[in-house]
């Protein structure tokens, strides 16, 4: 694995930036957090197995008992918890240096969204990985540089500086197909049942055909792609998306509605 060297003197600045971004949006967290919890929560499924020959007497089976049926008991059974895993993939290509309507660059907004999402997911006790991508793209070849900001096993606190440093690592063009493809394949191999990929991007120079292909691939692999687009339009690319102009808009009503709709569709 290659390394991207950043001056140690900037680490505290990056950590501060990470927590500041969370703080700025924390007042809008409530609805989003609730929606995320509903989408990703792991529930210990406890069920009852009926028509057993031993166990607790099932009163609803009395009528069958009268006809000589001996299988009138029920038992409690426990099922594996329905766990979730989330990958956050952030576009850090050169186009993210462009500004948004609120005066910030797209990259700063991406940083806010990523920090807030990572924090919310951490609070929801969901296994999360955060990556950023840049590289070179052509119709025949995508060269993807995938920066691993936080791995599944790492704590958010220990990787706050890396996530906070998003604003200083942007460069090159957008190999969106290759990056999303790699992340879909990677997350599909996880053992958790629910797999969600959050894509934070400006959808600059996206190929709609390739994106639709990735959506179909994700559907077949049981991966939910949630695309968050800032400063562009991603509506034709992915099924679940939100187009926003600022981080405040992302954590406003539309994102929560989107999460609810995904939960409903599951």
């Amino acid at each position: 694995m290659k390394t991207l060297a950043i001056s140690k003197s900037g680490k505290s600045v990056a950590i501060d930036a990470f927590y500041d971004r969370i703080k700025q949006n924390s007042n809008a967290f409530g609805a989003t957090k609730a929606a995320l919890r509903k989408l990703l929560r792991s529930i210990d499924s406890v069920g009852w197995s009926h028509r057993e020959e031993s166990g607790r007497l099932d009163r609803r089976a009395f009528s069958r008992y009268a006809t000589g049926d001996a299988s009138v008991f029920s038992r409690r059974e426990y099922k594996e918890a329905d766990k979730a895993v989330v990958n956050i993939l952030v576009d850090v290509s050169g186009s993210t240096y462009f500004g948004c309507e609120d005066g910030e660059t797209r990259l700063v907004v991406f940083g806010s969204i990523t920090a807030c999402l990572a924090k919310l997911l951490d609070e929801c006790n969901v296994t999360t990985k955060v990556s950023a991508f840049y590289g070179n793209s052509s119709p025949a070849f995508d060269k993807v540089n995938l920066i691993e900001l936080k791995d599944y096993s790492e704590s958010l606190r220990s990787k706050a500086a890396d996530i906070g440093a998003i604003t200083s690592i942007a460069r090159s063009s957008t190999p969106d197909y290759g990056a999303v493809y790699e992340e879909i394949i990677a997350i599909s191999k996880r053992k958790e049942r629910r797999k969600v990929l959050f894509l934070v991007t400006d959808a600059d120079d996206y190929d709609v055909g390739n994106a639709n292909h990735l959506q179909a691939l994700a559907n077949n692999l049981g991966v939910i792609i949630v695309a968050i687009c800032v400063g562009g339009d991603i509506s034709k690319c992915y099924t679940h998306y939100v187009n926003a102009k600022s981080s405040a808009e992302v954590f406003g009503g539309s994102f929560s509605k989107l999460l609810h709709s995904i939960k409903g569709a599951q």
Binding site: T3, K8, F141, N145, D162, Y177, G178, G209, N210, H213
Partner: peptide
Amino acid sequence: VDSKVRPRVETTRIKIQWS
């Protein structure tokens, strides 16, 4: 059969090093 040829993907994984 896919009528379109999708890009071939080559990925380099990178870690941030604070130095």
